[in-house]
Design a protein around this nucleic acid. Structure first.
Lengths: 235, 235
DNA sequence: GAAATACCTCATGTCGACACGATAAGCGTT
DNA sequence: AACGCTTATCGTGTCGACATGAGGTATTTC
């Protein structure tokens, strides 16, 4: 029964791997702006690209849809979700709040191993800053903040924070572009201060730092967008 | 081409309706505890029940999984998610915070039409309380609070709030059971006070009321669970 | 020449079937 | 009799094909 006649035609990836492969690949491409907002995702095309049937593709797209990363028009193609500038204030508001509550919880509940993980991730971040590697910065930054959320231990806050960081990674990209991929040293140092506050279980200070950190990022992005918009005003 | 030979064999629901039908049906059954936590969901069985292929079933289950309502074990059956009592404090914490921020935003930004909608929903809620109809209470209560979130206008807060209300509807069920499906009048009145605070744009008061409302529900559920647990202590 | 209409194209929604993995059962061995 | 191995069974993961509905296009009419 083992019709192993043509092993070449069967790369036979592991059984349940199809969906997650497609999901993670597309997710990264969307977040890194490799796939621009508005880009249509055709199942057939993806099917050919990933060398698998439409079924896993479909399920991956469904997951992306649940994450809000793609928008699916019924009976019509699904496209990469737009970054809508209308909701920016909502976004910044939520991001700031999640920064704060997660940092507060981390200051309250983080354990020694959490501290170590934070310092390790911060080291990676600092290294990326040193090298001027924007992609690495974004990744490390995300990991750093997610680690804070993990240390805080609230699943719901963590999930929303993750969503905000992911959905906003496209915005964050703007943030780094606005510095020409060179983050001033002081911004990186903010992370260090946060770690210290968390270690000292100084909830008030941690909250304050988180708030400042968020405000700073928000202000920077807003400045960039305002500037960018000026160029796009149609006359 | 129109092979309408056997119209009886083709009830032919509308094209894209399959997934959402299954999704909403199962979702309600899970939330109403008709499907107890741990119940396995077999695709074949559901396929037969809903009279459609496994594909739409599969996609519906995937959406439920994204909502955290079901847990899928790879290559193994998917089951209705457990209500894990470990995360209760996280849950209550997040619920309280979402109560507060959404109510604050509503107090700040709600328009006249929002007020009207709130009063209408509150009337429905009061009516359900009057009749002692627990299911209607839960539904109306959910609608009421979601309306507040809508009035607040922050998509991210709204979505998390919705998730909390849904995921917690199973818990909320306990809340109502603890009153024997009879909500004391004063709790219902809290809604009225909230509407007033929102209308008066009294953010501080709205926040205070939201906090008290949430605290109250949390305390009640915790009391119920503590009581319930005492019976289950194994010796 | 412009608008409305009918047709055509094509991506999605749905279907039935097959393959693989994992558990459960049956068998043989020590 | 207990343990390990082989085999049966079941459900998921994946596949290719068909049906359907929504745009786009060409044609026709005013």
């Amino acid at each position: 029964m083992a019709a192993a006649d043509s092993p070449s035609t069967k790369p036979t990836r592991r059984r349940g791997s199809g969906v997650s492969t497609v999901y993670e690949t597309l997710r990264n491409e969307i977040i890194d702006l490799t796939l621009a907002p508005g880009t249509p995702l055709e199942e057939n095309q993806l099917s050919e690209r990933f060398q698998m049937s439409r079924t896993p593709i479909r399920e991956a797209i469904l997951k992306l849809s649940a994450d809000g990363l793609v928008t699916t028009l019924t009976n019509r193609s699904t496209i990469v979700s737009q970054i809508d500038l209308m909701d920016l204030s909502s976004y910044f508001d939520a991001l700031t709040l999640m920064y704060r509550v997660n940092t507060r919880l981390a200051a309250e509940f983080a354990t020694e191993s959490d501290w170590e993980r934070l310092e390790q991730l911060q080291a990676e971040y600092a290294d990326a800053v040193e090298r001027g590697d924007a992609l690495a910065m974004i990744t490390a930054n995300r990991e750093f903040h997610l680690a804070i959320a993990d240390a805080g231990g609230n699943r719901y806050y963590r999930d929303l924070f993750k969503r905000l960081l992911d959905e906003g990674r496209r915005l964050l990209r703007l943030y780094y572009i606005s510095f020409n991929d060179q983050i001033p040293r002081e911004y990186s140092d903010q992370h260090e201060d946060q770690i210290q506050a968390i270690r000292n279980r100084d909830i008030a200070l941690a909250d304050q730092l988180a708030r400042e950190h968020a405000d700073q990022i928000v202000a920077q992005i807003q400045r960039y967008i305002a500037q960018d918009r000026r160029h796009n005003i149609p006359l």
